[in-house]
């Protein structure tokens, strides 16, 4: 599913450099990415998503060589293939929970907002326990509820790859387990691959595999 070969990336400003000789994640695999702060975990997610382009090497997701796509194609690839879950939830404050779930359909013409999609959004919301709260705006939701909305938004496009960047970082222990359960459950339901950056070592045994960034060469 994900294949990184001889990858080298340095931020334009210089200083930070990440090298990944070889990394493969198979379809449907649930992989945790750990490592000390500043070792390039988020950079890895951004490279996989095509938000960053490596100076050398390749990033392949499925049959697509993301690193060689032009910008518009990378954006289209992202919205059609990847579901994002962020640490800060990144919900749109002026939209209701229901509208936030459908947000990807509002920002591109590549996806069509059909009645089926709306039904899927409702089912997703019901599955994560948000059925009665779809009309509320993010400010009226708890943090756990906000992350559930974010998960629904990530899954609504039926992505084949889920990228979670510290998805449980802002949550209390009870919500952490709940959100992770939901993420696993929904990823499994859609047979999506999960690549999750986390600092929480207590959650690692729930993943299929852990990639420790201490094993990759990074320099400052």
């Amino acid at each position: 599913m994900i294949s990184l070969r001889d990858l080298a990336f340095a931020h334009p400003g210089g200083g930070f450099r990440l090298e990944v000789p070889d990394l493969t994640v198979t379809k449907g695999e649930r992989v945790a990415v750990v490592g000390p702060s500043g070792t390039g975990k988020t950079t890895l997610l951004n490279l996989v998503a095509g938000l960053l382009i490596p100076q050398s090497g390749t990033v392949d997701v499925g049959d697509t060589c993301v690193s060689r796509l032009p910008d518009p194609a990378r954006r289209a690839f992202r919205i059609g293939t990847i579901g994002f879950v962020f640490q800060n939830f990144a919900l749109i404050d002026y939209l209701t929970a229901g509208e936030n779930i459908l947000y990807p359909y509002r920002i591109t013409n590549a996806l069509e907002l059909t009645a089926d999609v709306r039904v899927r959004a409702k089912n997703l919301a019901q599955a994560v326990g948000l059925a009665g709260k779809l009309a509320r705006k993010p400010a009226a939701l708890s943090q756990g509820e906000q992350q559930r909305v974010a998960i629904c938004r990530a899954l609504i496009t039926q992505p084949t790859l889920l990228l979670a960047d510290e998805a449980t970082g802002n949550l209390d222990p009870e919500n952490k387990d709940l959100i992770l359960d939901l993420l696993f459950e929904q990823a499994a339901a859609q047979n999506a691959t999960l690549l999750a950056v986390t600092h929480d070592h207590a959650l690692l045994d729930r993943f299929d595999r852990v990639i420790d960034f201490a094993n990759f060469r990074t320099s400052r």
């Binding site: 998503a49 938000l51 992202r78 990144a90």
Partner: peptide, 20 residues
């Protein structure tokens, strides 16, 4: 800016942000 960043990360085209 946060909303624009989120839209960009999700895959929103620059033109779509302009249209909005």
């Amino acid at each position: 800016a946060d909303e624009v960043a989120t839209a960009t990360r999700l895959g929103c085209h620059r033109l779509a942000i302009g249209r909005m």
